[in-house]
Design a protein around this nucleic acid. Sequence first.
DNA 1: ATAATAGTGTCTCTCAGACAGTATGTG
DNA 2: CACATACTGTCTGAGAGACACTATTAT
Lengths: 252, 252
Amino acid sequence: MTGETEFLAGYDPSRYPPVAVTVDVVLLTVRAGRLSVLLVERRGHPFRGSWALPGGFVEPEDDLDGAARRELAEETGVLVSGFGESVALGHLEQLRSYGAPGRDPRMRVVSVAYVGFTSHNEPAVAGSDAADVRLWAIDDLAIAGVGSDDGVPLAFDHAQIIADAIERSRAKLEYTTLATAFLDEPFTLGELRRVYEAVWGETLHEGNFRRKVLSTPGFVEPTGRTAPTDGRPAALYRRGRATRLHPPILRP
Amino acid sequence: MTGETEFLAGYDPSRYPPVAVTVDVVLLTVRAGRLSVLLVERRGHPFRGSWALPGGFVEPEDDLDGAARRELAEETGVLVSGFGESVALGHLEQLRSYGAPGRDPRMRVVSVAYVGFTSHNEPAVAGSDAADVRLWAIDDLAIAGVGSDDGVPLAFDHAQIIADAIERSRAKLEYTTLATAFLDEPFTLGELRRVYEAVWGETLHEGNFRRKVLSTPGFVEPTGRTAPTDGRPAALYRRGRATRLHPPILRP
DNA sequence: ATAATAGTGTCTCTCAGACAGTATGTG
DNA sequence: CACATACTGTCTGAGAGACACTATTAT
């Protein structure tokens, strides 16, 4: 019947336009008080030698989130061998998709971008000049409205993707508890405040920040322990059960 | 050289997995005080006879936004012939992408979903039993957490897409001026309030709503004219220049 | 002692919710 | 007149910004 032929027509692989689908991951962390992103150096054309987001093709068997986690695990594996430590992913969510014709000069590519948060507890980048994966502070990159104008240029439209990821992150910190995804447990309120300051690029009032965090039920839970600092020791907290902040902690 | 061969390898169309990319549009409007979505009845398998979002393949020459506008224009054309009136799109933005394997039983399809707002000024749906495009009130549809459980089922994962679009819309009304995208100019504050009430599914206090809208510079601008209502005539406004609300108008 | 960070208390201003009351149209 | 909606004014409580002050460590 007509329905059957139409149904079969859906199976015809030549019916759909040739478009490749990839995932790209913007993995953000705070290192030495600076918001930073994990980038890889491209070994092939185009943009050979430029820095780009980790990513790759969506394989037939994995869904979009799974593809993002797989690509990230592959890059994290590089981190493991390079820095001797694995990365515990604190959060990963879809950002948006990018599909302008010509964004990849080779072919039509639609990329589904993800943004992830993680802690950073490696002391420093090892001085391996052969490393092709490293963290970049975002204000050392050429990203409109964020980094310095003479920063390192990025491959493809990845500067735009990173800019969008940063804006999403800044907004998420306002009304969710996701700032804790940048930290290992347990953490101090000073560490949590420095996450906000690094992501927002603003200094916050210590006392008011403390009041707002502690007055939000379920944001953080006290552990009863303390950790030494450069001054008075700070109480240690772990993540609470809340995911959304009511009321939000708005940017200055 | 090596770089050249790698570059050429990128041109090989057989290298990327066979994935089709489509756009789907969730066009929302407020009709008779009810938040509604434009759906099309499927003529082919699978889900023949079910209601689905308008959408289609991304063609090689159009970017994602362009593809969404093109598909929407095609469906709007149906609206024109069916209802005798064109639809002025108030706003269109990317929602997110959906790519779970098996979401389309025919083949691997990654769909980039868009959400749009428009006014609704047709008096009623014409009684054309041949119509395959119509507005559905969202609480008549089977959408988890939104519609009634015995509502009309939707094709593919479109119930989830609509649910995500509604949540995006509800959040957008809190901190942007996009509620005006549901209205034709000029409009009254009562009409604007009824947009919020329809999208949020909450009744709002008339006086407090008025105070918040008018105290936000650039949200609406007075025209000096009035329009009759069921009571005292209401002042007419047009959209202001602001796009974001500071402070936001939060849901109750 | 000073320096540095953690943590507490308080004042004031803004603003949201609640609610009363007035204004202006129609039937 | 009643009724419906538009519009104005005021009280109150929650919460953010600003700021002063105390607490506990290291040097």
